[in-house]
Nucleic acid binder design. Structure first.
Lengths: 123, 123
DNA sequence: CCGAATCCACCACGATACTG
DNA sequence: CAGTATCGTGGTGGATTCGG
């Protein structure tokens, strides 16, 4: 992500905002664990922090927090705090996450197609 | 990319190969400059190394080479060397790049939609 | 002209320990 | 339970230099 600024240079008068939005979106997705997190939310619905941490096996709470914050900032999930004791924070899917799912489905189809091309399965 | 291995853990019995393929694809795309490179190839067709370097303003030859190699390895472009003097290396789009284009179009639509949601444009 | 090799600097991840 | 704080480390991008 170090050179994202360098890509802010205008490119042939193209609307740079769009391309930037693409980059941001892609980088959000490819950040480690995010796919896991998003899939869990779409598959299992609202999930609490601890549960998330358990399901995304191996992630540290620090990184999980960072990811969740980023995803929240981009509207892919929402965060709800219940100020009880002990604290209870739940993360919810959003409409935008549903858009995401469609997109990921297409991505999956594509990568699957290529995978089969690369590794033909002789019957 | 440091934790990609950590994600190799099987996830609920899902075929991990597919998810891995997705990751590889996504990481390929999000690597800096790749979007630039791919767009240029799709828009302008076969392009030589030097031209590519000029169009992708700011990229170093080292990184450009690395990116091109990766993209070639994944079949997104092909490389043709003309052993003349001076040497002439041209990079060509591939069918797979065309698949890519469809996918990127959808991605663009999505990010554009979100962009408009985030920044409503009052007329 | 195309690209390989080297060196450096940065930063994101991971582990650990600690609060409200 | 749900994070924040701090430190150490490896992987990558960038600049530069050299070679065919």
């Amino acid at each position: 992500m170090s050179s994202i600024d360098a890509e802010h240079v205008d490119y042939d008068g193209e609307p740079e905002a769009e391309r930037c939005a693409m980059r941001v979106l892609l980088e959000l997705i490819t950040a480690p664990w995010t796919l896991h997190i998003l899939l869990i939310l779409t598959d299992e619905g609202p999930t609490r922090f601890g549960a998330l941490r358990r399901k995304v096996e191996g992630i540290s709470s620090r990184v999980l927090t960072v990811r969740l914050r980023s995803l929240e900032a981009r509207g892919l999930l929402s965060r709800s705090v219940s100020s009880s004791k002990p604290p209870e924070v739940t993360y919810y899917p959003t409409p935008r996450l549903h858009d995401m799912r469609v997109f990921m489905q297409q991505l999956r189809d594509l990568s699957l197609k290529w995978h089969h091309e690369d590794h033909p399965n002789p019957t």
